[in-house]
């Protein structure tokens, strides 16, 4: 937890944040609309006398009480997918439409990929890329189980993804993962400034390539599950000459604004259009989300 002390001045109600960080994460699932409806799924849970609560901000999200979702028959049938609540935010901000050409540049293990596929109603093209053969195993398994028929999996280095024009691109970048520490506090042991600066180079290259690959007027969403401004605002800043920033604000979900400055670097007021999601505000993991339109 000591590592997080560097954020004392930027995270509102810091003591509450620290308290939330040591609480276990609520168990969440996403209902897979490619195979079932919310009503059908919930009536099955009711019949089995399982306890759950619908998310206020997202109609396909449920919090389960005292249930391991992987053991449910609905998991095997591909009707639900275990997914941390805040991880459902970036696809919603991306807002993909049926028939579009969409790229998920850092796709494994495919939670957001399959969420995008269901938003596209299995129509159009969704390219799900990941460079790691090992991680692609999980990505493919999730796409199959959830019935995503518009997904084509590729295995490129995202920084050198081949030329193309996409309507929308999600860059859910590799990051230090501080926001997932509620799942596993040992994540924080690996976090330090040097590592964040190393990741920043990769993240800037991935986001830069994503801007190259987006059509004019197309949408890019950059997200991480870390609090480190080096991996968030500083990465978005690197493409600001080529994009417009759009305000990220999801009704029903409390957010903090992106930082206008950090550690002597001035990002500017516009960076406030990015959203920072903190554990103590919505009882979720932590996330950073930026929405960009290519000029």
């Amino acid at each position: 937890m000591d590592h997080l002390d560097r954020y004392r001045r930027i995270i509102p109600d810091y003591p509450l944040f620290c308290e939330a960080m040591i609480q276990p994460l609520p168990v969440c699932v996403r209902i897979n609309s490619l195979k079932t409806s919310a009503d059908d799924l919930m009536s099955r849970l009711d019949k089995a006398r399982l306890s759950y609560r619908r998310l206020g901000w997202y109609r396909w999200g449920l919090r389960l009480n005292g249930i391991r979702p992987g053991l449910l028959i609905e998991h095997l049938m591909g009707h639900i997918h275990p997914q941390e609540e805040s991880s459902m935010i970036p696809p919603l901000v991306l807002d993909p439409q049926p028939g579009e050409k969409v790229l998920d540049l850092c796709a494994s293990p495919g939670s957001k990929t399959t969420q995008i596929a269901q938003m596209m109603e299995n129509d159009g093209i969704l390219v799900a890329n990941d460079p790691s053969p090992g991680r692609i195993v999980a990505l493919r398994a999730n796409c199959e189980r959830l019935g995503a028929a518009n997904v084509a999996v590729t295995r490129y280095d995202g920084r050198a993804f081949p030329r193309y024009e996409f309507d929308r691109i999600l860059v859910d970048a590799p990051c230090s993962g501080e926001g997932m520490a509620r799942k596993d506090l040992t994540v924080l042991k690996r976090c330090n400034l040097k590592r964040s600066m190393g990741l920043q180079r990769l993240q800037q290259a991935l986001l830069g390539r994503a801007v190259d690959l987006t059509r004019q007027g197309g949408v890019i969403v950059y997200s991480t599950c870390t609090y480190a401004p080096e991996e968030n605002e500083a990465v978005v800043e690197s493409v600001l000459d080529r994009v417009r920033l759009i305000d990220v604000d999801i009704p029903g979900l409390a957010r903090s604004r992106g930082l206008d400055a950090w550690d002597g670097n001035i990002f500017g007021e516009l960076m406030g259009r990015c959203a920072r999601y903190y554990p103590h505000h919505n009882d979720t993991g932590g996330f950073f989300v930026a929405k960009l339109i290519k000029r």
Partner: peptide
Amino acid sequence: PPFRLETAG
């Protein structure tokens, strides 16, 4: 799509 594909649907 014109990429080297691991899967197609």
